[in-house]
Amino acid sequence: MSLTSAKVTQMLQEIQQGNKDRINDLLPVVYQELRRLASGYLRREREGHTLQATEIVNEVYLKMIARDDLNFNNRSHFFAIAANGMRQLLIDYARRHNAAKRGGGAQKIELDEGAVLSKEQSTLILALDEALQRLAVLDERQARVVELRYFSGLNVEETAEALGVSPATVKREWRSAKAWLYRELKSG
């Protein structure tokens, strides 16, 4: 097991034991790993190789989305899982960050604690997650475009690759999805 992987395992254990602060530290590592995998996957896919998820992503997904079978059949499957995993991680992060004050403890203040995301961002992430669930009912593919773009940070081309559609389609879907989501968030 690589050092990073061991570290991730430990961080996941700590998160499960209630040390939610660790999500702060886990996210960048997982993100980097995902980015690395994603680029590797896209490259190798073109060369006709089959993807094997690394230990680390396995670990994260086992714990975070409770999937024990992670042999990805194809790139769409991989990205669906990956995007969902990142979404889950971000939601946890935002929830914790956003958690209402309880028990007289002081509110964590953004000035410290390495809050990479602002409180507003955290609030928005949670609201967006809910809106996205509603969107998925109306148009699943469009919801996945949002998930990949927003929650996994893929660009238009990467998203198109992941979904096996043209970049133009992604652009179009992304624009109307944003309009729909924006309206939802404003009215909500």
Binding site: V116, L117, I125, Y150, G153, R175, W180, R183
Partner: peptide, 27 residues
């Protein structure tokens, strides 16, 4: 309503993934 929202959504928070914020550290 969506047409009206479009211009405002352009350039809103939706444009950049919150994950990008983590990229600098991860790198």
């Amino acid at each position: 309503e969506m047409l009206r929202a479009d211009s405002q959504a352009e350039g809103s928070f939706l444009e950049s993934s919150p994950l990008l914020a983590f990229e600098a550290q991860a790198s």
